[in-house]
Each structure stands twice: as structure tokens, then as C-alpha cells.
């Protein structure tokens, strides 16, 4: 690999690039430090999404974030997918490429969900082998995100934070710490989110994600459709202190509000950069009565109808 994780820059505060905001960004060039794209939305596009991305990439640093690498699948890597990913990277020159510690399907099927990986020695061996293959092919470090999870396998023997640590030690990959996912997974799987963040290899955390979720009483769904809740800000504050500050990004994928609302939510992060111990946060938890979809993906299907001219 030509580049190491430690050489990757701190980009500041960024936003997930969404089609709903294309026109606003092109017209107003808002003061956002950087944008993260969903790689799959652009890697096969010869239409407007790609046309817009090319313009935005000229003005802002871009990071490519994928959902389909399926690094945790027992299927072989899809090199056709990786080829397209690499081609997009060549074209837009992202600061880094990330995906999730998850699998999306086996036996050549795709659930289009970020499914939880069994965390044991067998899976660690297979996943680290695949990470090395990807890094060799992409000629850059791969950055992997902790997913939001809703179950723990009986066969899991390694805590997720430790699995990520071993993964980093074995492959020199980077980590994308999704603070909201830590909170969601810790509630659903009953582990301590603080122990989780404390245990991570902080120097390998290249980026953090923030997002909103939906609390359903006995479980939490990672919906990315609302503001970040106080307990997640609290964890962010801890992670900020432990990492010494790193590129941070807000994801908002459902009920996407105006650009300025998303941007204002992102900028709240500045209030939580003064040290974990110094923060005073009153946890605010709102429980919802209806459940909606986890890891929403419908925003990834282009609403072509909106783009028609008569």
C-alpha cells in the first residue's frame, strides 16, 4: 500500500451527500469541510448523479463510503464490484474508501442489509484475509465501520471492539467509528458502550459517524432519520477525546430535511469537543411506538420521477 492510515488527513466536519441536496450545494457552495458519498450511488452512474458528483468533487474533499463490499461474507470477494469501485476512485480521487464490518449475502445473493458478523477466530481469519486482498487490489488502506447490530450470535466469542482491534493489528486497515452504531448495538446486545470505545485502537480511527436513531423501548433501530440524541453526543465526546479529534460526518438518510438543517445538526458536534469529563449531558430518550426500517436504503434508489422535464 502506498498510503498508511496514519497519513490520512483530518478533514473536519462533513456531511453525507444526498440527492435531495444536489441543487443547494451546486447553487450555494455551502461551507462544509467535506462530503461522503455512497459509492454504489455513483459507481455505475453515467447520468445526473455522476455529473453532479464530478462538480462537487472539484470543490470539496470527497470520501467514498460503500455498503456492498460484503467483507464479512463467506462468499469470495466480488472483483467486478471492486473494479468499479476502483474506477470511481481513480476518477474522483477520494481521501479514503470505507465500508462496513458486515456481510450483505451469501451464495451469490444480496439482502441489501448490513448483516452482523459472527465474531470468532474463524471469521477473524477469513475477514482479515479478505481485507488484505481488498487493500492490495485498491492499493490503499480500507477503512471499516462498526455496523449497527440487532443480534449476537451464540458462536461469537470475541467482543466487537476487540475484533476490530485484532483486525487493525493484522491488516493495518483503518476504522470508521460510528458512535451512533455503538450506542444502538450496545443497547440491543447489552454491552457497555464506554468500554467499547475505550478499548478501540484510537490511532487507527480515521473517521467518525453521527446519526439519529429510533428507540422502540426494548430495542433501537438505526434509522438515520432524526437529530443525534444526547447519549450519542456523550459517546462522541468521549471518542473525540480519546482519538484527539478526527474527521466527523453526519448521516441523514430518512425524512431528509433541508441542507441547512442537516448542516446545523452537524455543527452541534463543536459543542462536544471539549472533553468527555467536562461535558454535562442530560440523557434525553424518546421512545417511538412504530418501528421503521433499519439501515434505510430507499434513498439509494434514485427517484427518477423528480428529475423529469416535461
Amino acid at each position: 500500500m502506498k498510503q498508511t492510515v496514519q497519513q490520512l488527513p483530518d478533514l473536519g466536519l462533513g456531511l453525507g451527500l444526498r440527492g435531495e441536496h444536489f441543487n443547494h450545494i451546486l447553487e450555494h457552495t455551502p461551507k462544509v469541510d467535506w462530503f461522503e458519498i455512497i459509492s454504489e450511488n455513483f459507481m455505475d452512474s453515467g447520468g445526473r448523479p455522476r455529473y453532479v458528483l464530478d462538480q462537487i468533487a472539484e470543490k470539496y474533499p470527497i470520501v467514498m463510503h460503500g455498503v456492498s463490499m460484503s467483507i464479512g461474507s463467506t462468499d469470495d470477494l466480488n472483483f467486478e464490484y471492486l473494479k468499479r469501485l476502483k474506477n470511481l476512485a481513480k476518477a474522483i480521487n477520494p481521501k479514503w474508501i470505507s465500508d462496513h464490518l458486515c456481510w450483505t449475502g451469501v451464495l451469490s445473493l444480496n439482502s441489501h442489509d448490513l448483516l452482523p458478523v459472527v465474531l470468532n477466530e474463524e471469521s477473524l481469519k477469513l475477514i482479515t484475509t479478505k481485507i488484505k486482498q481488498v487493500q492490495d487490489y485498491l492499493e490503499r488502506p480500507l477503512i471499516l465501520e462498526n455496523p449497527s447490530t440487532y443480534l449476537t450470535f451464540q458462536q461469537s466469542t470475541i467482543p466487537e471492539w476487540q475484533f476490530l482491534k485484532y483486525m487493525v493489528e493484522e491488516t493495518n486497515c483503518g476504522l470508521l467509528l460510528d458512535v451512533n452504531n455503538v450506542y444502538v448495538s450496545s443497547f440491543n446486545n447489552e454491552f457497555d458502550p464506554i468500554e467499547y470505545i475505550e478499548g478501540l485502537p484510537h490511532k487507527s480511527i480515521v473517521q467518525m459517524h453521527l446519526a439519529g436513531h429510533q428507540h422502540n423501548g426494548d430495542h433501537i433501530i438505526d434509522t438515520h432519520d432524526s437529530p443525534v440524541v444526547d447519549p450519542v453526543w456523550e459517546l462522541f465526546s468521549l471518542a473525540w477525546e480519546r482519538t484527539g479529534g478526527t474527521s466527523t460526518l453526519l448521516e441523514w438518510d430518512g425524512n431528509i430535511p433541508d441542507f441547512n438543517v442537516c448542516h446545523a445538526e452537524l455543527l452541534k458536534a463543536k459543542n462536544y469537543m471539549n472533553g468527555f469529563e467536562k461535558q454535562f449531558v442530560t440523557p434525553r430518550v424518546t421512545v417511538s411506538e412504530t418501528e421503521i426500517v433499519s439501515n434505510p436504503v430507499d434513498f439509494m434508489v434514485t427517484n427518477v420521477a423528480k428529475d423529469f422535464v416535461e
Binding site: E40, D44, V297, V301
Partner: peptide, 11 residues
């Protein structure tokens, strides 16, 4: 016809 594609565009 469960999805066999990495992209939802083919769904």
C-alpha cells in the same frame, strides 16, 4: 427473484 446484484438499481 432474490437480489443477486450489489446494486439496488438492478432490484
Amino acid at each position: 427473484y432474490p437480489s443477486k446484484s450489489y446494486t439496488l438499481g438492478d432490484l
